[in-house]
Each structure stands twice: as C-alpha cells, then as structure tokens.
Design a binder for these strands. Structure first.
Lengths: 234, 234
DNA sequence: TTGAATAATTGTACAATTGACAATTATTCC
DNA sequence: GGAATAATTGTCAATTGTACAATTATTCAA
C-alpha cells in the first residue's frame, strides 16, 4: 500500500535565517536588513526567507544569501534549528540558521539596495526581531569555536591581506588582545601564508607586507586541528 | 493590522530523530529500533517522532527519547537539521536530529520493549531507512570532535568506572589505540576523577581501582578546552 | 638633513605539555 | 611457589606555549 500522507500531524513553515559576518580590514561586522513585511516591518533583522516546496535547506540558504549579496560560492554552514512554538507570533515557523563568512570588499561591489542592509560593528548590534539576538550569540560562539581549530577566518579576508589585519580580525573574534610576536609565529607556522613582495602603505609609515593564502594547502588542511588562540575560553 | 498567516508558503512536517550512544563497559554502542509503521515498517531506524503543535524541538527530543528509554535528564544535544525535499518518500518531512549519551546500565533497568530496540556495535550497524546512515555518521563525527576538547564522554560512563574502561571508550570513539601511560596521565591531570578505595575485580586478576566523577568540577569545567586525544584527525 | 614619531618586524629563554617507550606490582590459578 | 594476566607507575627528549623588548623602515616636520 502506497501512503500519501502522514495523518493527524502538525505541519509548519520552515524559514532560513542567515548570520552574515564580514571584515573590513579593521573590524568584524555583521550584515543586517530592515524587515520589509509585517509583522515587525521596518525593524532590524537577519536576512531570511521561507524554504520553498522543492528546495533543500542548503539551497534555500544559498539562494537567500545571494538575494542580498549577489554572491555565490561563499562560506555557508548550517548553525542551528530554532523551533520554539511561538518564536514567530504570526504562526509557527521553524528557523534553520546558517552562518556565512564573506569578504566585505567583494560584497561592496555587488550590493543590492533592496533590503536597506547595513554592516554593524558587533558591539553595536541594534534591537532585533524575534529570537535573532540569540541566533547571533550562538553564531559568534560557533565562529570562535571553529576558528580556534580551523583556519576558517581566511574566508573573511580579501585576496591580499597583512598580518596586522589578520590580527585585528582574530582580536575582534575573541574580544581580546593577542601578542604580536606569538601571533605571527603561530600563523606563519601553519605554512598557509605566501608572502608577497609589496606592502600595504595605507595603514602605516613603514608599511606591512601583503600575504596571500595558499589555497591548495588551505583546502587540504582545513580539517586538521590547529590551535590559534592560547588560553581562550568559549 | 494583525496578521493571521503567511500566505502562499509551503508548510511541512518536522520530525525529531535521536542518535543514542551507550557504553557497556567494553564497547560503544548505538540504540536502534524496528520501525513500527509504514513506509519501511519493520526496518531498522533511529528512534524518532513528529514534533507536536505546541512543543519546542528540545522538548520533543526529550519526549521521544523518554518514550524509548524511560530516562529523564540525559545528555541531549541538537545535531543537525536534515531537510532534503525527498528524504521521506511519503511527504516532505524535515528531521531535526539530536544525539544523546546514556549510561547503558541505567537504560537496561528501564527498557521499554515496545520498539524492539537493540544496541548495535558501531562497526555492525544494519541497513537503515531514509538518510539515517548519514545522520549517524555525522553524530560520530560530532562526538569525536566534542570529546577531543570537552569531557563529554563521562556522560556514557556509570557512576563508578575504571581507567581501563574509560580507555576502552575513548579507543572506540576514535577507532584507535591509545598509550595507557599517556592516557591515564592526561585524564588524571584534568582533576575530574576521584579515586575510590575499592577495585573492580571482574575484568582482571589484579583488579582496577574504581573512580568517580567530580561532578562539581565537571559542571564548572565542561566548556574549558581540553585536548584528550593526541594527533587525531576528524 | 636630522630627529621624532609611528607601526612593522624579529628573537630569546623559560615553562608546560606531549609523545615514545618498559619495568614493576597485585592477584589468581595451577 | 611459579606462571600468567592485566593494572599501575616513571623517565626523557621533543615540541609547543608564553612572557617579554629591541630593531627596522618610513614619513613628516623642524
């Protein structure tokens, strides 16, 4: 006997919400939009949308991210499924969250102004709808966790970057100051960086050498355990 | 204007599936049931069920776990949301997976025979319905990951346990042999173990001292980074 | 031209941890 | 009493972590 439906069960909407991190060379930032429909229209929110009928969660997340940023092939990873019955006051809606790491310069070139999006410093996140604050908190935790053992923060850096820039990024992620000497030693010991023979002269008088990521090694070694941050607690 | 529904959106069933690990003193095991309804009735499956109308995912997972094991207050953590459109051939059903760690002796006392559940050695998992094999694979990965840095495997051990038992457990989780001397040094250095003054005399002639977990320290230190397993890859 | 200011780059020494490796101990059974 | 079995304990070298400061390259203004 072929069954057509599971009877007497409760169906619900399933949405995706994206926690989008970017780095502008100085600070880690989070991309938020102004919600364009009721309820809570006009308030700040994560970029989101409903999962379509014949679409996987991963595909839905990629589609929704692209709607806002026009970017393909960015780092996108499922974070957590939020399912409190009344998290959306209109009707029951589960939210599968994804967190994404993008090179902010790439983004700036292709921005869609449709959503009134803005980059916020992580210390200055405005009031948000529903449970989006909790989602961001969890995403920050996961980013810390992951970056402690995997070189995932490279996803946030532009093609060419300097060691001081990288250190800024790590210091923002861990909200702590890191010793320059120990930091560069550890980062360089991964063998993932290729030194360029020209400098970034904008940020200082001496200038800081540019580096590029050795993408081949990065791909091969991504899942190896590293330990970038000494003594940190989650 | 009060909105009652989001129009023109696709609703779907949401289920919970539990990946339940246990440890019998010698080996890590996985609890599977015989599916009791169509489709795929009679085949091996993870314990699962649908999320009710006014129930959070966490509550649903706890309820479903209790249905099978009669156990409350066991380690239960959300793993991943599986949402491929056709993962269940009957109709679209998302599955929010949870993984759970239980003391197998506790379980044996309170077993419900309603589901024809059996403990399987991780090397001898039978053919499973839907995407449950993939779920187990991911749960194994997450358990390894987590246990490398957090003392989470204590959740699997009985109230009193021996160091050789603990080592069996770690060796099963990482599918590798660990040096006894280095293992005991590392485990004891956490300060989480309290040596008892009597021995388990069943498994050897000399007998192995029992230990208990210092629960206060365990709670306080759970999120500290540890590093139990040298040189392992995920 | 020189020196002050700024930020990048480089090094060292001690402590802690890790990893490889084997001898000793407690007990039972024959 | 000796063999067998499994638990317990220790050492040393290598690696890694951590704390800490001097030097270098450049610009700008006196």
């Amino acid at each position: 006997m072929q069954i057509k439906h599971y009877s007497h069960q409760n169906r619900m909407l399933v949405a995706i919400d994206c926690i989008i991190f970017g780095f502008d060379g100085l600070h880690l930032r989070l991309l938020l939009i102004k919600r364009g429909f009721e309820p809570e229209k006009g308030r700040w929110s994560l970029m989101g949308g409903f999962v379509h009928a014949d679409e996987s969660f991963d595909n839905a997340a990629a589609r929704i991210l692209k709607q806002l940023t026009s970017l393909d092939n960015v780092y996108l990873e499922q974070l957590y499924a939020f399912g409190n019955p009344h998290r959306d006051p209109v009707e029951r809606t589960a939210s599968i969250t994804y967190f994404s790491l993008i090179d902010i310069n790439q983004y700036e070139k292709q921005i869609s102004h449709e959503y009134h999006a803005e980059w916020f410093h992580l210390k200055k996140i405005p009031s948000l709808i529903f449970d989006h604050k909790e989602m961001i908190k969890m995403a920050k935790g996961k980013l810390r966790y992951k970056a402690a053992f995997h070189p995932v923060l490279f996803e946030l850096l532009p093609n060419k970057f300097t060691l001081p820039q990288m250190q800024n990024l790590y210091e923002d992620v861990y909200e702590s100051v890191i010793d320059k000497r120990n930091f560069s030693r550890k980062i360089l010991s991964t063998g993932l960086l290729i030194k360029q023979n020209h400098k970034d002269r904008e940020s200082s008088k001496k200038g800081a050498y540019y580096y590029k990521l050795d993408k081949r090694k990065y791909m091969r070694n991504f899942n190896a355990f590293l330990n970038f941050i000494p003594n940190h607690k989650i």
